[in-house]
Structure formats: structure tokens, C-alpha cells
Design a protein around this nucleic acid. Sequence first.
DNA 1: GTTAGCACTCTAAGCATACGAGTGCCATTC
DNA 2: GAATGGCACTCGTATGCTTAGAGTGCTAAC
Lengths: 357, 357
Amino acid sequence: MSEDRRLAVLRAIVEDYVATQEPVGSRMLTERHSLGVSPATIRNDMAALEEAGLIAQPHTSAGRIPTDQGYRLFVDRLAQVRPLSAPQRRAIETFLSDGVDLDDVLGRAGRLVAQLTGQVAVVQYPSLRRSGLRHLELVPIGVDRLLVVVITDTGRVEQRILEVPTLAEATPTADDGSLAELRARLNVAAAGKRLAELPVAFEQVTNEVDLALKPLAALIVATVVDTLDEKNEERIVLTGTANLARASMRFEQGLGPVLEALEEQVVLLGLLSEMTHDATLLSQAAPGVGPVAVRIGQENRHEGLTEASVVTTGYGPVEDGDAVAFLGSIGPTRMDYPGTIASVRAVARYLSRVLPS
Amino acid sequence: MSEDRRLAVLRAIVEDYVATQEPVGSRMLTERHSLGVSPATIRNDMAALEEAGLIAQPHTSAGRIPTDQGYRLFVDRLAQVRPLSAPQRRAIETFLSDGVDLDDVLGRAGRLVAQLTGQVAVVQYPSLRRSGLRHLELVPIGVDRLLVVVITDTGRVEQRILEVPTLAEATPTADDGSLAELRARLNVAAAGKRLAELPVAFEQVTNEVDLALKPLAALIVATVVDTLDEKNEERIVLTGTANLARASMRFEQGLGPVLEALEEQVVLLGLLSEMTHDATLLSQAAPGVGPVAVRIGQENRHEGLTEASVVTTGYGPVEDGDAVAFLGSIGPTRMDYPGTIASVRAVARYLSRVLPS
DNA sequence: GTTAGCACTCTAAGCATACGAGTGCCATTC
DNA sequence: GAATGGCACTCGTATGCTTAGAGTGCTAAC
């Protein structure tokens, strides 16, 4: 009994099932794929595959469908990379480079992935902590408020309004002059640093600065640090939710749980960060391209996502082996893995190229 | 035949149908509501209501369900305002005031509406054109780029990166000094103006400024104007899409079309702006509260929304009779209109109060 | 190791029946 | 004239039954 043919059968089952959405039997298989053997032989192989937990039958007299483990094996060893067509690539590139700012570019990236994969796209904004600070701006508003604007080298802009009831009293000289000084000092201190390193750098500034400015400086530093707080630092865009509805029949339990899971950004963020660090899930790191991570069905620890698979990859500059941000596609376990992987990877690559440098 | 009782019957039908999701017959009606008449009488009334196009029966031997026009009449004349409970109000207020910045506050508002109504919430960011400019910031990036940050008095921050290949040449003095001057001039010119009026004000600055700075100034002005361009100026957040799935059975045609419609921001924006100007759809403008607009089923011109109703109201400061932005809730035609209206109105009110002033 | 044949299983589809909720109408009552 | 009780009628849904077909597992032959 040839091991190779068994795997060929598994691949055929996965491909057919993904294409037709229906359990595939031994006869169909021999008809559609030229395996060179009879249905009976296939049946034997299928029995073995089922024994190995790679396929299963929904009910006794139905064809086979791949299990999560079957998909896993398919993705890891059987899937053939199918690069996008040249026109597709060009479309991606031009569409992305038309973006006017970060919001726009990431929005476009999401729409691209959603359209290419026919699934839900998820795009994570560049991590604040891993970004560098490009500029810190302080804008006084009225008499007792201060707008703190943080601009990263990845193009993210975060702002926070600061109530400074003591702005006028404690720093009577805090006209634009001394505020400008403070701004200049902070910017110098932050130059070239990553945002995660800022607290330390800023502390020094707080110490060096005029006594009168100290409380204000401390407040500003606290705000910036708070802005970088784990909870607030990540931001995610979802696109293509409508695609889910079109594929709703593919979810046994309805898409309620799936939508719920997707709506909880916490869940998504957890998922993404897990996938980043889980090396065993990384698949086919082609040369020159970041690895693509795939999570299949139950591998997502989340209850609402047991019937879904997630395909992600990093984009943007890579630092310390970790990419700055991630994007991916989410769909039913029975998805077109090669196509999804190719799309996600392509968009990520062009996105990295287009992003403000 | 009492006209009053007929309307009472309509109200009862709407309320029962919304509650049970099933066509309501004459018997049920007499059992659940004390109308003081027999089923036979109700049947006569129902025949009249059907004649008037206010109710219909899905099939010959089923109960009646309200038509879009039936809901319309219910909303306009029969719905009783049901204010939220005191704890609910307090919850809204505290939850909203915990927001740290505009993004956060509007996100919270969306989640509130979604949770209160059990439907999809839509929140429009304060219109840029109707906002005032609080501050315009110019940040040089590298040698040939300029980051233009526009901060409105409604708390919105929009940024755009400007490629200025001639920054170094055309304005060799364009160190921080002359840039600061330009910034100062622009800010002075813009003081107190609404963003829509900026182009005119800025043109003057462009004329007054040093010859060397002119091209740069023109470029900046063009960028700001472009940022305010109709297409880019509006931004919308959707929340609670998962709620749709839970109510998916209420949409005959599945929620595919609905999700598609919601995902097209253009559609939503059109809808919102139409509703703003369509006075005939405004319902019950209670004293001291902005009017709430309701669109029912086919009244939404959009194909995907024929089975959906939209409830919106303005929030934020009112200028020239128009609110600065809108928020609302979208659900199946068979929704709890009084509840939805109350929730939307309440959140809008507190939102207006909490927003940065 | 592969194949053909065959009995067996189980689902989906079709169909006929029965049930019941609800209506419309008419004759009757107040 | 409005409200009511009674009654025949409609029609969708649930139920039970049968059938067709796809697919399997097993065994014996190649």
C-alpha cells in the first residue's frame, strides 16, 4: 500500500471537498482525478486515512470530509503554492499605492484581502510599542487643556486630550515658549527610540527640566506611557464581513458565534499574538518572504472559531525577528488554503513596500 | 365601527408581532390584550386594516403581520415613548464619560447602542466641514516630506503626509523657523472658522506670504482642502454586527444583502444624509431633544435594506439647524421601535454632553 | 497489492394524510 | 348599525411511510 498514493488521495479529498462543499466518495475521486486505481482501492486508502484521523464521514453512508488534522497535513505538506497572476499582482500594487495615509492604506489592504480570498480580512495596525517615535506634539487648548499627539514612524497618529487644571498656575510661563522647550526636549530624548523605550528616556527629561515645568512634564510622560498601555496600543480593522454571510451555510452552527468572536477585538488580538509566537504553526517560509501562519478549526482556542481557520502573516519592517504588525484572512475550515495563503502573502509583501518608510 | 379600536388593534398586532415573531391571529389578540370585544369583531377590523394596506397575511390561513406602512403609522401615531430606566441612564453616562479620546468615546457609544437595542449600531464621526479648526500642525519629516495634522474642535484628528520634493530647494530657509511662521499664519487665519470656510481664508495667507514660501503654502492649502473633500471627510463606525446574526431568521432573504449594504460606507452615508434632510420622516421631536428619524423597510431606497429599518438622530452641537454628526441603530423591520428610539435618543443626548467642548 | 461484486446502511426526497390555526361570511342579537 | 356566535373553507405544517441513490465494508478472485 503506497504511502504516496494515500497522501494523494487526501489531497484530492481536500481539494474536491473545498471545491464542491460536499462529502466526497470513492467513485467521484477516481472520476475527477486520474489516480490510476479503482474505487475499491481508494476505499481501502480512505479507511486507512480515517484510521489515522485525517478524514471522517458525517454519517455512515456518506463520503468523507477532511478533519482539522487532515487540513493541517494538507497545509503543511501537500498544498502547492499557487502564485497570483501577474495582473492580480499589479492590481494589488497600484491599488495599495493610491492610499493617502495609513488609515487609507490599511483600509485598502483589508478590502484587497477580503476580495481576493472571499473571506473576512483582518488588519492590525502597526504595533505602537515596536514603532519608533517620529514626533511628539503638544498643543495647548484653551487655558487648562493640552492635546498630546504622538506620531510614529509607521504613520500612526494617536492623540489624547489632557486635563491640566494647573497648567496656568503651576507654569505661569507656560506660554508657547516654555511649552515649545518642553516639546523640543522630549523630541530630542525620544529621537530614534522605540516607543517602548520612551518611559525611561522621558524620565530623564523630567528630572532635567525646570522645576516649574516638572509637574507638567510628569503628566505628559504619564499620558504617553498610558497611550502605549497594552490595552490601548493595538487597533484592528475588519473587512468583508458580508463575505461570511455568503458562506454562512458552511458554518454548521450558524455564523453567530463567529461574528461574536470577530467583534471582540481582544479575542482577535490574542489570536494574532499567539500565532506570532507559535513557531510550530508557521508554514512554508519561502525565501525572502515572511512566514505565513495557519490556524485550523479547533487549533483556535476560541469556541466561536472551531469551524474557522485563520491565515496570517506579518507585514512592515521586521525587528528582532518580529514583524511590526499582522494581517490575515478568516474563513471556514473548508477554505482554499493555497489561494488564501498566496493572497495574504502577496498583500503583505506589497503593503510592506508601500508603507511610509 | 370605532376608528380608535381599529388603531388599537393595529398597535396590538405590531407589539405582539415584534414580541413573538409570529403572525398574530384574532384569537391570540383577544386573549393577550383586553380589547373587550370578540375575535369576530377583531376580524372585521383586521379586514379593514388590510384593506387600508396596514397589515397583510403571509398566506391565506395565517395571522396578520404589519406592512411597512403599518409600522409607519405605528411609529408616527401609536408608539408610546418608553424612557429608559434610571440605572440604564446612569450606566450610559458613566460608561461614556470614561472615554479617553474621540475614537474611544464614539466606540463606546456604538457599543452602547448595539447592546441597548440588540441591533447594529452606526456612529458617524463629527462632520469635518461643519467642525471648527482647533489647530493646524506642520511637522517636517526627513528632507522632503511634511506631515500635515488637522485637529478639529470636535476632537477629530486627520493627518496627511505630503511629498514636497522641493521643500529643501524652493524654501532653503524652510527650517523650523519659516515653517513655524507659516504654521502661525495659517492658524491665525483659521481661528474660529469652520473648516468649510478655510479655503477662502487660506487663499489670503498664500497671497500675503513670502514669495519663497508660496509654492509650499499653496501645496499645504491644497492638501487641507483635499482632506475636507466630500469623499474623505466622513467616517463611520459599525458595531454589533453579531447581533444581526442572532436575528438572522428575521431576514427572509438572509443577511447577506444587509451586511453588504452596511459594509458600503457610501450607502450608509447617503442614507444618513438623506434622513437628515427628510423632514417628513422625523418623528416626535420631544422638547429639548433632537428629532429622531425613522426609515422603515422600503423607505430605504437600498435593495439590501428593504427588510430593515434605520433609526437615527443627531448628536453634538447643532449648527444652522443641522447636527454635526449622527448615530443610529439598524435592525429588522420588525424591531422594537419605542425601545430603539429611546436608546438611540438617550445615547445621543449623553454623547452630546460628554463630547469635548 | 489491486480489483470486482455484493449485501448493507443511511440520508434525502417524494407523497399522502391528518391536524390545526385562522379566515370570511352569514344569520342573530342587543 | 355594531357586535357576536357559528360554521364551512383554506392552506401551511407536521407526521409517517416508501423509495432511490450514493457510499461503504467485506470477501473472494486476480
